[in-house]
Write a protein that binds this DNA or RNA. Sequence first.
DNA 1: TGACTGTATTGATCTCGATCAATTACAGCG
DNA 2: CGCTGTAATTGATCGAGATCAATACAGTCA
Lengths: 248, 248
Amino acid sequence: MPNRQLAIPQQDCADCPIRHRAVCARCETDELTHLESIKYYRKFDAGQTVVWAGDKMDFVASVIEGVASLTQTMEDGRRQMVGLLLPSDFLGRPNRDTAPYDVVASTDVTLCCFRRAPFQKLIAENANISQRLLEMTLDELDAAREWMLLLGRKTAREKIASLLSIIARRDASLKDLPSKGEVSFDLPLTREAMADYLGLTLETVSRQMSALKRDDVIRLEGKRHITIPDFDLLMDETGDDADGGMLV
Amino acid sequence: MPNRQLAIPQQDCADCPIRHRAVCARCETDELTHLESIKYYRKFDAGQTVVWAGDKMDFVASVIEGVASLTQTMEDGRRQMVGLLLPSDFLGRPNRDTAPYDVVASTDVTLCCFRRAPFQKLIAENANISQRLLEMTLDELDAAREWMLLLGRKTAREKIASLLSIIARRDASLKDLPSKGEVSFDLPLTREAMADYLGLTLETVSRQMSALKRDDVIRLEGKRHITIPDFDLLMDETGDDADGGMLV
DNA sequence: TGACTGTATTGATCTCGATCAATTACAGCG
DNA sequence: CGCTGTAATTGATCGAGATCAATACAGTCA
């Protein structure tokens, strides 16, 4: 299994506050110049909708900080999250200017946006950028397939444990810490958003969180700050095999 | 929502028995020549495993005929299908020579294979091929996300109806028929494989099939041949909104 | 300070799909 | 033909998670 972290380039992208592995990644100097001229930043508050499904999207973007989600909704209101965008993740796609899903900021979010037209020109002209995008899309696809296993076959408890381990890992790698032993982090999702991620109801999420707390797999300080006393213990609850590379 | 069919090129690829939209698609004459020299065919019987998860895969391939599935298995045996490969779909990926999932032939399958090394060289040298692969991968990602909605939020009946509509559509488009009014086709999956696709047990699949038959949404001739008297009626059972582009 | 709002927890009950088990259908084959 | 083995159907029962409902809690605003 591929490991996303390995893909994060060491070279920072000009004035982006953190290094990120989106289009700017691995770019040659001249490409970077191109990018700088079409790049701008946008901020969103927690809960704000970035784009609605069906809306025109005149930009693509890279998540600089915060967490956003892609969500699908059925007419009767049933909702399923289908993408979770953490810092360094990419939003939008070339050759498609209509958003297929609602994009909602789960926390305050900063996006590094690229105007669509010049971005597409950039792709057309630079082979390594479309190769980079291909690589990232394949990682997304792997993540989606791991997610499908979770949705289709895991128990509620395993689902919660899996989600916590995914967030813990990504958070740790962002802070350059190992995800071993004691790990703690802030949950960027409400119970409802967790339920939408996991294909559960928020009551079940809450109950299973309480159960994991009761069994000392996790500790809660306030509603959102989580400490995992022993990461291996949490992993035992996910149903994944030990080495199995869970990708976000 | 994008429509896959539009992506199928009208130009056939040399001696491939049917036109297919894999790497050969839209290629210039000289690229095609390259391809011909690294291309070979392999056949598999229904039930045969093409590759095991973790195995080295020294080729990538395009499905020429038949149906294959990608499946993930947990240690305790729970299984979830995460990919269904129909004719024209692509298998394998550049820069990854280890199969992440079991690939199993659901029916007799013919693959058009490309040796990995020269194929990667081809990608590196031809920008339009990696753009083509990107496009295809994005379609896969959309399909995976539609699938996630199915797994997370649909009822057993809706799941079955959705699967039947997906297969009916792909089958119809392959035969250049419209998926309207009365449609009929052969189910390329066992009840067990359907269950693995849908995150259900095979008993539930069987019961829901019987229920759909009882309600005249489908008709069964033998175990595998299905007739849908009115495609719209089936669509009403899927839970999708009327226009919603369900992608395989 | 207290009313108000959105988020989270906990309880009681119900239901859909899982599980366990028996039977049937059918294709291949001696 | 009657076996044999696999795939599929059907029945009886169970249980995980959904649903409905009440309560707790932390901000925030008047």
